[in-house]
Simulated scan of single mutants.
Amino acid sequence: MSNFLRTTICAFLLSGCTYANSEPMPYKSWYLGFSAPAYMEVWIETADVVDIQNHVYPRAMSGLASMLKPPNNSGDPRGWPKRASIGSGKHVTGADLPKQIYVRWQSQVEPQTYLMVVKIPEATREIMLKGEKVFCAADGKWITGYRQSIGIRLVPGGIAKVWVGGPCMTPIEVTAVKAVIDPRGPYEGKSGGHYRPLSAVSKAYVEKFGVPYGSW
């Protein structure tokens, strides 16, 4: 665990703030996923979760964020999607509902390393606990659905938006976050400044069109 994460978690826990969830989760685990715009490749070094019981789950997610790479530069990375994808990720098994999510990631097209803290408000947790009757077109059935997934979209410039969603349910945007640059660089300064390389498809797009700053 990085010194940044230790310091931030300790400061928060020592503040004496506590959160109580009045209801048990109606599902065994919740899902944490990440996505990025087309060609704007993102490598998540770590996503560490603190739940409402103040339990810490280091590296609850790491790896590539989901992203489209249409051939022949036919994709469009600009702007935010009308219907957000939860993205690639993992179930945070054993955790209660989230209180904070700490993310360190590489924006490979810049390249730059970012740090951010996503604070999950009580209103978002209430959404995650609320069941809704929804129709699933895939199997033609009505179900009681829950928004049991948190999706975080990471874009160049260190901007992130967060949605909650679930099977057959429309995602709801809950917050936006502006990250800070990690001055240590990639891998907490342990790689000599070397970033993960871009794929050939993403490299070709960026070399021709650049990064569409200002569209997010």
Score class of each variant (00 low, 15 high):
3 N>R: 14
3 N>K: 15
5 L>Y: 02
8 T>I: 04
8 T>Y: 10
12 F>S: 13
13 L>W: 11
15 S>Q: 06
16 G>E: 12
17 C>V: 15
18 T>H: 10
22 S>L: 15
23 E>Y: 10
24 P>A: 14
24 P>F: 13
24 P>V: 15
26 P>D: 05
28 K>Y: 09
28 K>P: 03
29 S>F: 12
30 W>M: 04
32 L>V: 14
33 G>V: 13
33 G>H: 04
35 S>A: 15
39 Y>W: 04
39 Y>M: 07
40 M>W: 05
43 W>I: 12
43 W>H: 06
48 D>M: 08
50 V>Y: 03
52 I>F: 04
61 M>P: 00
63 G>F: 01
67 M>A: 13
69 K>Q: 14
71 P>Q: 11
72 N>R: 07
77 P>E: 13
79 G>S: 04
79 G>V: 15
81 P>M: 07
82 K>Y: 08
83 R>L: 14
87 G>P: 02
89 G>K: 07
89 G>Y: 07
90 K>R: 13
91 H>I: 14
91 H>G: 06
94 G>N: 06
97 L>D: 03
98 P>V: 03
99 K>H: 12
100 Q>D: 14
100 Q>I: 15
104 R>F: 09
106 Q>C: 09
106 Q>K: 03
108 Q>A: 07
110 E>V: 13
112 Q>V: 12
112 Q>S: 10
114 Y>S: 02
114 Y>D: 11
118 V>Y: 06
122 E>P: 00
123 A>I: 13
124 T>C: 11
124 T>E: 07
125 R>W: 13
130 K>Y: 08
130 K>L: 10
140 G>Q: 05
144 T>Y: 03
144 T>H: 02
145 G>N: 02
147 R>V: 02
148 Q>S: 12
149 S>G: 08
150 I>P: 01
152 I>P: 03
152 I>S: 06
156 P>V: 03
156 P>K: 02
156 P>Y: 02
163 W>R: 14
164 V>H: 02
164 V>M: 04
164 V>P: 00
165 G>I: 12
169 M>Y: 03
171 P>V: 00
177 V>R: 02
177 V>H: 01
181 I>M: 02
183 P>K: 01
190 K>P: 01
190 K>I: 01
194 H>P: 00
196 R>P: 10
197 P>K: 03
201 V>E: 14
206 V>N: 05
213 Y>T: 11
214 G>V: 00
214 G>D: 06
